[in-house]
Amino acid sequence: MIFATLFKQLVRRPATNPFPVKYMPRSVTGLLGKVAAGKASIHPPIPAPVDLRGKIAYDAEKCIGCQLCVRVCPAKVIEFLPEEKKIRMYVARCTFCAQCVDACPVDALATTPDFLLADTDRFSENLIVQAAPGAAAAAAPEEE
């Protein structure tokens, strides 16, 4: 019988990791506005372990354009840009295996613990990793 556990649990804190807010707010955008203005607070995300395989960081300076990452990527996330001899990654497709990081011979790629990547637009600036940050708009999806 598990009644002892049940009654103990009655006075314990719930095991659920807290959501940003406990209950659905009346207006999500209103709440976000308040948070931005410093009038309300939300629970921070649960800290991730340091070596979590999150979003891939790309150092274009180091990249030599060897295309090894393109060859090993299982999800075909990485596009090779022949003119600049650099790569562009579409994070929305990424499976976070980080095989490209292992494959890179010059350590131009690295994992970050950044995992809060939800977005409504799969081509948003946050979800495209490439050389110059401002160039995302110019290189909008030509295929797809």
Binding site: L6, A15, P49, D51, L52, R53, F96, C97, A98, T111
Partner: peptide, 29 residues
């Protein structure tokens, strides 16, 4: 359902361990 929630609660420990050992919670790669 109580047992479901309690057992899945204790499962979190091994999931956290797997996450810190491998870098991913599932699909450990």
């Amino acid at each position: 359902d109580t047992l479901l929630h309690l057992t899945w609660n204790v499962r979190e420990k091994v999931m956290d361990l797997l996450e810190s050992l491998t870098g991913n919670r599932v699909d450990y790669a």
